[in-house]
Design a protein around this nucleic acid. Structure first.
Length: 195
DNA sequence: CGCCAGATTGACT
DNA sequence: GTCAATCTGGCGG
């Protein structure tokens, strides 16, 4: 598979929902101790800024909120329930927001992913935000790193443009907005929840 | 400084 | 179906 060049920074300078949709079929590429770990993005969620009750920027002015309103195309690593979640900052010039990567289809470096996860089932390696972070060795040390630079430890690449897209409401969110902000590749076997 | 909730997961009844 | 481990930021004392 041709994983292509990195997506340029301006790719992320749009409405988070647009970016979340456009990221499906793209490739997440992580360089971890000389090994390249690669997966195709099959599930994403969009989050907004202060107007979104589910967003960490809803009522905070800390580092995470500042990052959500800062440079687009940077990783936002956030810990919940002891797991790390991987997001990319994406928003229009005057706004704030980001995209949560929720599931991948493993492509390369699968043996290393299995070792990092302590699991052997291919379908269970990267089918959830906490799981894919563990499988790719993602932790807070990648916080704020650009994903649009060729020599970055973590990058997002062209891959392909996915057309078979389905929508739904966000997973695990207590106070969701009234619009569907979860996007996934219909019929993928690697989703975080079955629908 | 202590307490609590949360964009989760895996083990167990 | 239930439940608790585990980590960070926000908020009250």
């Amino acid at each position: 598979m041709n994983i292509g060049n990195v997506m340029p920074q301006y790719f992320y300078a749009r409405d988070p929902a647009q970016v979340a949709m456009s990221l499906l079929g793209r490739v997440l590429c992580r360089v971890f101790r000389r090994t390249v770990l690669v997966g195709v993005i099959v599930e994403t969620e969009a989050y907004y800024g202060r107007t979104d009750p589910a967003s960490r920027a809803y009522r905070s002015s800390g580092d995470i909120a500042a990052t959500l309103y800062g440079d687009v195309g940077r990783a936002l690593i956030y810990g919940v329930h002891g797991k790390w979640l991987f997001n990319v900052v994406a928003h229009e010039p005057e706004g704030g927001g980001g995209v949560l990567i929720r599931a991948l289809e493993p492509i390369s470096g699968i043996e290393v992913m299995k070792k990092l996860r302590g699991a052997s089932d291919l379908l269970q390696l990267t089918n959830g935000p906490g799981r894919l972070a563990e499988a790719l060795g993602i932790d807070k040390s990648l916080h704020k790193k650009p994903v649009y630079l060729e020599d970055s430890e973590i990058t997002i690449r062209e891959g392909r443009e996915e057309k078979n897209i389905a929508k739904g409401f966000r997973i695990g969110v207590r106070k969701d907005l009234n619009i569907p902000l979860r996007f996934y590749v219909k019929d993928s076997k690697f989703l975080s929840v079955k629908t």
